[in-house]
Nucleic acid binder design. Sequence first.
DNA 1: TAGATTGTTAATCGATTAACAATC
DNA 2: TAGATTGTTAATCGATTAACAATC
Lengths: 211, 211
Amino acid sequence: MVEDREISQAVIGRLPRYFRYLGELKDQGIERVSSQELSDIMRVTASQIRQDLNNFGGFGQQGYGYKVESLYDEIGRILGLDKEHNLIIVGAGHLGQALVNYMNFERRGFIFRGIFDIDERIQGTQIRGITVRPMEEMEEFVRGNDIDIAVLTIPKTGALEVAERLVACGIRGFWNFAHVDLHVPDNIQVENVHLSDSLMKLSYNILSHID
Amino acid sequence: MVEDREISQAVIGRLPRYFRYLGELKDQGIERVSSQELSDIMRVTASQIRQDLNNFGGFGQQGYGYKVESLYDEIGRILGLDKEHNLIIVGAGHLGQALVNYMNFERRGFIFRGIFDIDERIQGTQIRGITVRPMEEMEEFVRGNDIDIAVLTIPKTGALEVAERLVACGIRGFWNFAHVDLHVPDNIQVENVHLSDSLMKLSYNILSHID
DNA sequence: TAGATTGTTAATCGATTAACAATC
DNA sequence: TAGATTGTTAATCGATTAACAATC
């Protein structure tokens, strides 16, 4: 049953991985898959797969399993990959440039529309055909180009102020690479990518595993 | 009590954030903090803070709280930030270059020693003073330079084979940006950074929150 | 000492796994 | 129909929160 109750972030966090494996099965020309088969490939329990999927509806068929292609499409739709998202990047440093140049995001409907940077020397230059603009133009650009996601690849010093400005002009979500916790209203979404935190976790796990 | 039982990844995942906030308090010259004060700043329960810290030892003092600087040092030590890690990057594309150029990792003891790429045209060039080497030299370099972490910033096609080669020559952990699940022995650690998964999660949360 | 705050046990909550009736 | 596999309820497990005795 499709419930109105909010889905837990643990479940949401697993959807992209289901999506990826189903895409691979699809590419291999496989038409159907049971939760048990998927369980073997993905190394999660079949029970969890069925529970997770049933949060969104009964996509399977008793005695048969799941149709790979339609389940793939359904999960894509749930994740909003059938819709276009318009993005801006704030901070045209190495990381910002790397993200703009990564083509796969566009394939999934995430389109970089604008790049902003505080550094006058790179304003006016182009990254993959997109002009780097001064920070002053940010608000007008967001409002005028239906931007819903801002990617923050700036040092943490400026991030809070920039986030505030973006909230004020109607941004819906942040993909935050700045090493700081944004405080935004409840209806604005934040997805953090704290690279150094991730590396520290790896460091811990390596050390704790030396016998 | 310092227990022998394994600490849950949920707890480990929160340590870098404690570390960051304690560093900020330290920089502000604040000497002591109670779990309640930290709770207010970090927006987690004081109970969780005390539980988390007590996995590693009694760092606090009843009636007083925690000494900021020594707690900061302790968490750094737990995360292994007092030790040096030697890293190689496999894949000198935009993302690989961005990571090499990000100075803050070195500050924490993560030193990039070598860069490898399959593309002959960039082999021999330098990125922040580090020569890009051909893939054939990888094993010898890892063995000869006490490399413990490999950063994979290559397309998923090559990642499994590269990972296997690196396991064979004694790597201890992977920081994996390739969009594929590595299968490695239990004593090898993998920390995934699946950027597109993260972006999909943001997309879901934005859509599910449109009223 | 009195007050404050930890360390730790107990209670609660939520997520995962197991089991099985429903059904294709 | 018989066999297979889902959808879903119940049981278990683990993580978070609350409570409070220990103690600085």
